[in-house]
């Protein structure tokens, strides 16, 4: 009898462990949205994810890995989510989605002294455009047949723009403002072209109750203005 009780206790413990399992958040280096320094994660989406998980009462742990590895792991490991990635039609079936956690207004930026004016995306055809791999904007432009040069860091894209390697840089206002140094004139937005929504992409079989509580928590954060306040803290607006 004692054996059966112990077994039941073990089963109960295992069951509760599964329900309350810690979610492994696979973030990737993408300052100022997500980055780590001396083992501490920081950035707008790190903060927002933290608020969402705390409100939902779900434990989590952030691990930094390259984006492609994050995308593969979240398809393989039932406790994993990518923080975060564009919710694209061709990715829809590969993940369970929670979001949007980030809404970016992407534009084409040029150096302040460049007189280039664009009225439509089509007028940028033939021009070289810099983009951060994985940010969504470059992939979008490449799919439309534009000349895109990818880099694995936004700082590199900005340096290439400054060095005259290309006339245009596809980026968001948050990224641009974070990279402009004190006393430096910021690049000029020549053409806004895409609103990008990015979500947390979780393993497709992740516990439905966990996903539901995270989604509810996010909706509450939007409704209470917490998301807007967080954006303001980072100097951007949801408008």
């Amino acid at each position: 009898m004692r054996g059966i009780s112990a077994l039941l206790a073990l089963l109960l413990w295992l069951c509760c462990t599964v329900v309350q399992a810690e979610v492994r958040l696979l973030a990737w280096e993408r300052p100022p949205l997500s980055s780590q320094s001396e083992g501490t994660a920081a950035g707008l989406v790190v903060d927002l994810a933290g608020q969402m998980f705390r409100r939902a009462g779900v434990d989590y742990r952030i691990v930094f890995v390259p984006l492609q590895r994050a995308l593969m792991s979240a398809q393989r490991d039932a406790d994993s989510c990518v923080l975060l990635v564009e919710r694209r039609q061709e990715r829809e079936s590969s993940y369970a989605w929670v979001g949007p956690l980030l809404i970016s207004r992407l534009g084409l930026y040029a150096l302040p002294g460049n007189p280039l004016q664009l009225d439509s995306l089509e007028q940028a055809r033939g021009l070289r455009i810099l983009s951060h791999q994985g940010s969504g904007g470059g992939e979008y432009l490449k799919a439309q047949g534009f000349r895109v040069e990818f880099s694995n860091k936004e700082t590199l894209s900005y340096a290439m723009l400054q060095g005259g390697r290309a006339p245009l840089w596809a980026a968001s206002p948050l990224v641009v403002s974070s990279l402009v140094r004190k006393g430096e004139t910021a690049p000029r937005e020549v053409l806004p072209f895409l609103t990008l929504m990015e979500d947390m992409a979780c393993h497709p079989q992740m516990d439905a109750a966990v996903l539901s509580s995270l989604r509810q928590a996010l909706i509450a954060l939007y409704a209470e203005g917490e998301v807007a306040r967080l954006y303001q803290r980072y100097g951007v607006s949801l408008e």
């Binding site: 694209r88 809404i103 895409l194 609103t195 949801l238």
Partner: peptide, 26 residues
Amino acid sequence: VVHEITGEDDVVNKLRTQSELGLALY
């Protein structure tokens, strides 16, 4: 006018997001 072009699925997602979250996306 910033006239964005995206996948049909994304249009529907954005319409739903703006509607449900009250955000001024478009």
